[in-house]
């Protein structure tokens, strides 16, 4: 179980301390045991036709005028671009 949690944490980009991992193991274990009651439902997809469908907008450009404020909110920016550190495996 612990291995599963470590892998799940990696996928979620979260760090857990050893204590937190132990706690997570217990918590997650209990939660999964609880939600396991769903397994008695039969498998299969729903046949219901969805009610709310086809919500579209037309292909029209509109500038909300928020671009400057958005980049201004960046923790770090340079030359109007968001700055991030290098990935160690750059593409």
């Amino acid at each position: 179980m612990r291995e599963e949690i470590i892998e799940t944490a990696r996928l979620a980009q979260l760090d857990f301390t050893e204590d937190e991992l132990t706690q997570a193991e217990v918590q997650l274990g209990r939660m999964l045991a609880y939600v396991n009651r769903l397994s008695k439902l039969p498998a299969g997809e729903s046949e219901d036709a969805p009610a709310h469908v086809n919500v579209f907008r037309e292909d029209v450009v509109r500038d909300e005028g928020l671009a400057t404020e958005i980049i201004a909110g960046a923790p770090e920016a340079r030359e109007n671009q968001f700055v991030v550190p290098k990935t160690f495996a750059n593409e």
Binding site: T8, A12, L28, M31, V35, L38, A43
Partner: peptide
């Protein structure tokens, strides 16, 4: 963090059918 962990877990390949799809059915 706990809820993100649970949410990530139930979407993982191999668990999606058992948890997420069943929950949708419910």
């Amino acid at each position: 963090k706990q809820r993100i962990l649970l949410g990530t877990y139930v979407l993982r390949a191999g668990f999606y059918e058992d948890y997420y799809l069943k929950a949708q059915l419910a």
